[in-house]
């Protein structure tokens, strides 16, 4: 995609802070299950939404992702959703629903993981 940068897990927080300094607005985030690892894309918007910037992070399946919700509070909801739909660990979410935001107790667990159909 256009305007896309790939960063490591350690650089994520500094990159997101740079976005905040540029007054970018948080769009949403997408999580992808690539069999051996996860890929998370954060979508930001610049210039009143006319331009987009994507930050891509690659994560091993047993690794923990730091939450960006302490910088952009609004990211807490989408991080909760990612945590529920995928078997991904995210640490320090500002408002943590403990995997109970969208799914009920009886619902299939982590439905968006591959090989679940």
């Amino acid at each position: 995609m256009e305007n896309e940068i790939t960063v490591s897990k350690a650089e994520l927080i500094t990159e997101v802070q740079k976005m905040l300094a540029q007054k970018a607005m948080f769009g949403t985030a997408t999580c992808l299950d690539l069999d051996e690892r996860f890929e998370i894309i954060y979508h930001f918007e610049l210039e009143q939404g006319l331009k987009m910037r994507h930050i891509r992070v690659s994560l091993a399946k047993d690794d923990t992702l730091p939450s960006i919700s302490n910088i952009y509070m609004c990211a807490a909801l989408i991080e909760n959703e990612m945590q529920e739909m995928f078997d991904i660990k995210i640490s320090g979410i500002a408002l943590d629903f403990k995997r109970g935001m969208l799914l009920a107790k009886e619902s299939p667990k982590t439905p968006l993981m591959k090989g679940k159909e």
Binding site: G27, T28, T30, L32, H43, M73, C74, A76, L77, I78
Partner: peptide, 15 residues
């Protein structure tokens, strides 16, 4: 499709 992610406005407006 491999993945379809839908980012909706109400989800963004709740905060």
């Amino acid at each position: 499709l491999e993945r379809l992610k839908i980012g909706t406005p109400t989800f963004a407006n709740i905060p």
